[in-house]
Structure formats: C-alpha cells, structure tokens
Amino acid sequence: MLAGGAGSLALYTVTAHPAHAELLIPDVVFKAMVDRMGDRTFSESGDNIAFTLPTHAETGLSVPATVSVPNSPMTQADHITSLHMFTELNPQPYVADYYLTPRCGKAEITTRIRLARSQFVYAGAIRSDGTAWITAFYITVNLGACAADIFLPDAAEAVRRRQLEGG
C-alpha cells in the first residue's frame, strides 16, 4: 500500500513483500512511476522481478541491464504487459518503457543504459491483472555519463568524443 500523499513526502513506502523490508522510493522516481505505470498500488517485487546489472561500472556510459519476470507464463490470462526502468539521480528519472504481449513468450528485456553517478536504479513490471511490482538495485559508477571526471582521463576522453560526435 502506498503511504504518503503525492508531493508531501520525499519518500514513498511500497507494500512490503513478506520476505523483504519496505522499499523507500524518492519523490522524483515515484512521480515517474505514476506517470509511466499509472496511478495504482505498487508492491515490492520480492522475487517476481529479476533485475540484473553490474554492482559497479567503470563508466556510466553504457551499463548492461536486464529486467525480467522469469515466472510469468506469458499466456493471454496471465502475462506481463510492461517492463520499466527509472533512475534516481540522472537528470531525468525516465529510462525506458517496454510494452509486451503474450506473443513475446518471455517477459525479459536486456538493454544498455546511461548512469550519471552511483545511485539506485529501479525496475517495474505490470501484470495483466493490474498488479504492479517494483524493485531497486544500487550500482556504483566511477565516472558518470553526464560529467567529466579528471581522475580518469580515458573515460573523460570518451565523454568528450561523444560530445563531439553529437555536435
């Protein structure tokens, strides 16, 4: 159950999974979740979502991330309709939203994301009955994707190259 009114608290509590402690979600991420996943009850995912990414990234330019709901049968009656990713400390909380159908056969996506710095990354899944699960993963990042760090000139060079390519 959701605790705290919109905007009134910096942290939102999501229904605790029996095996896990409560998940606290920062305001900015919670609003993004409501925006992309709808205004509904969010539950801590427990083992429903497998959210796989490295615990540490040398640079935040391209971090592999997999979101999966391994036990979903992906039938018409019971399937995952969407998978989502959010970040707490990137310039924007939105990362990606994936819309699935029973014809996917497997509720899993793998992609590469940018991370500006060490932070919690969040994953969400919506099931065909409307249930919404949320999980979080803390990742440390040496060099972010949005700032040049003089301590690691190689990576800073990569950022600069990318800046040039983009311009």
Binding site: H20, T52, L53, T55, P64, Y138
Partner: peptide, 14 residues
C-alpha cells in the same frame, strides 16, 4: 559482477 537485486543489497549498503 552481476547479481540479482534483492532488498538485502540495499540494506547491506546502508
């Protein structure tokens, strides 16, 4: 070092 996220990781960090 990939591992599945559990609430425990979050608590350990804290």
């Amino acid at each position: 070092m990939t591992q599945k996220s559990t609430r425990r990781d979050v608590l350990k960090l804290a």
